Simulated scan of single mutants.
Amino acid sequence: MNIMNSYSLTTNLVHAGEENICEGAVCTPIFQSSTYLTQENEKEYHDGRYIRLNNTPNQISLAKKLACIEKGELACLFPSGMSAISMTMLTLLKEKDTIVAQKCLYGATLKLMKYEFPKLGIHTKFIDIDMPNTWGDSVNSSAKVLYIEAITNPLLEVVDFQKIVYFAKENGLITIIDNTFATPINFNPIELGFDLVIHSCSKYMSGHMDIVAGCVIGKKELVEKIIQKTNYMGSCLDPNVCFLLMRSMPTLELRVKMQNINALRLAQFLENHSSVKRVIYPGLVSHPNHQQAKQYFSGYGGMLCFELKSTTKTSVQEFLTLLRIPLLAPSLGGIKTLITRPALTSHVMLPLEKEKLDITLEMIRVSVGIESIDDLIKDFDNALSTAVP
């Protein structure tokens, strides 16, 4: 048993994966070497130390830390979140297999499941998370995995996780959850019985909008299979990126807790503003899944969506350009507040799906940062008052 498992999340964020001090360095240095001397105990291909085999010092340290904070047995690193999703699926599925997934997902994930995997003979059946009595209709002998997001992108839906896990176990499905939006600070899916947890580490885990990375964490027997498949497919994380992500992890809890506070206050302000039509945030009582979010999460996250009462393209665009603190850019989870329109970014390649999901052109998504919330509210108020008088 890893000794770090006996410590709190706060301590593990700082120390896990760095128990073996190298040359007296208090931080794990960058090991800028692609290959390493052969050791006597190397018996198999995957034992040789080589960056592509995901077993060099920076990779090992980072994987240990990620597994520890998500309370998983093992972690595998990837050069992006989408790489983590695709390689996990390609490991666990074969031709004629079926994925069971919720309807609302990140645009690229939805595109992958609906249009790319069918080319390989892998199909997806989509379920409505709010209608558990219909989930059984999606399961047959070809169904192998159940895939959901802890908080969906961009509609911020929250499923009843215990029902999902029970349903999956009853039907022999491997459960996979993307925990990017919730983070291990607010939610630990493995404690509820999920088999695998995926993160786009480019987002909250890194928090500084300067790297792209991903990971999958969970049961050793599953992650080992994913690692072997990944090694053959050539996906690996560079030591420099490992170092930058490792450096960001100790402040994850501090950042996310501040983002929880800021997002809730901004959501409450927007909900009461006369120029705002609707606000979507799990921490609001008005959110349809608020009770589930309250039950499972220790914080409601840093993401929110809203729509203006004025539906003209001019007013939406004018509002966005009037803001001074938020940056008009895609992605999320960083220390700086980012604002975007999902219909034109994350879901732009899915015209039919975004219409069915009610992802409108007027919908605005905010990734709330760690700036002063008073400054943010003042900025939003000024922009709203001018663009939507």
Rank of each mutant, 00 (worst) to 15 (best):
M4S: 14
A16N: 14
G17F: 13
G17W: 10
E18G: 06
E19K: 09
C22Y: 08
E23C: 14
V26P: 07
Q32D: 06
S34W: 05
T38D: 08
E42R: 07
K43W: 15
R49T: 06
R52T: 13
N55S: 02
N58C: 08
L66H: 04
A67F: 06
C76M: 09
C76I: 14
C76V: 15
P79L: 07
A84S: 12
M89S: 12
L92N: 10
K94R: 12
E95M: 13
K96H: 13
D97A: 03
I99F: 01
A101V: 08
L105Q: 04
K111L: 04
M113I: 03
K114H: 02
F117Q: 01
K119L: 09
L120M: 15
L120W: 10
L120S: 14
I127K: 05
M131P: 04
T134K: 09
W135A: 11
E149V: 03
T152E: 02
N153P: 04
E157F: 06
G172A: 02
T175H: 02
I176S: 01
N179H: 04
I185D: 00
N188A: 06
D195Y: 10
D195S: 13
L196F: 05
H199Q: 14
C201M: 14
G207W: 01
G207D: 05
I211Y: 06
A213S: 15
A213D: 15
G214K: 12
E221S: 14
Y232V: 07
Y232F: 10
M233K: 13
L244A: 12
L245C: 09
L245V: 12
T251C: 15
L254W: 05
N260Y: 02
L264W: 01
F269N: 03
S274K: 03
V276C: 01
K277C: 04
K277Y: 04
P282I: 05
H287T: 05
G302E: 00
E307Y: 01
L308T: 10
K313M: 06
Q317D: 10
F319P: 01
F319T: 00
R324I: 11
L327A: 15
P330A: 14
G333K: 01
G333M: 08
G334M: 12
I335P: 04
T337W: 06
L350M: 13
E355K: 15
I359C: 12
T360E: 10
I364E: 00
S372V: 00
I373Q: 08
D374F: 09
K378C: 10
K378T: 12
P389A: 11
